[in-house]
């Protein structure tokens, strides 16, 4: 009888473990489902954007300018001049009024 009780207790523990594992798997599945849905939406947005972009060359140009501007910001933050006076030269003495004037204007 004692052995049976011990077996039952062991069985109960295992069942609890399995239930916990099942719960975490369920949570994980929900998270993956959410992420999947989000990615689908993002793909959809990108797809829609390309459809629109192909139809409107002006829009495409704007996007390309935006990309160019981001490159300039990156170049400036990496320590190079982006003003027309010293473009590409190393900024050895801190910020430059003319580079910042250019960035602010944009």
């Amino acid at each position: 009888m004692k052995q049976l009780n011990a077996l039952l207790a062991e069985f109960e523990d295992k069942m609890k473990g399995l239930m916990q594992e099942l719960q975490s798997l369920k949570t994980r599945a929900y998270a993956l489902e959410d992420e999947n849905e989000k990615l689908r939406r993002e793909i959809m947005d990108v797809y829609q954007y390309y459809l629109k972009d192909a139809a409107d060359p002006k829009n495409r140009q704007e996007q390309s300018q935006k990309h160019g501007f981001e490159n300039l910001v990156r170049l400036y933050s990496e320590g190079f001049h982006i003003c027309n006076l010293h473009f590409g030269q190393l900024r050895s003495e801190g910020d430059c009024l003319f580079c910042m004037g250019f960035l602010d204007k944009k």
């Binding site: 003003c83 009024l97 003319f98 910042m100 004037g101 250019f102 204007k105």
Partner: peptide, 9 residues
């Protein structure tokens, strides 16, 4: 001379 007007906020 650089365009100074553009840097004056």
């Amino acid at each position: 001379f650089p365009n100074y007007r553009q840097v004056i906020p």
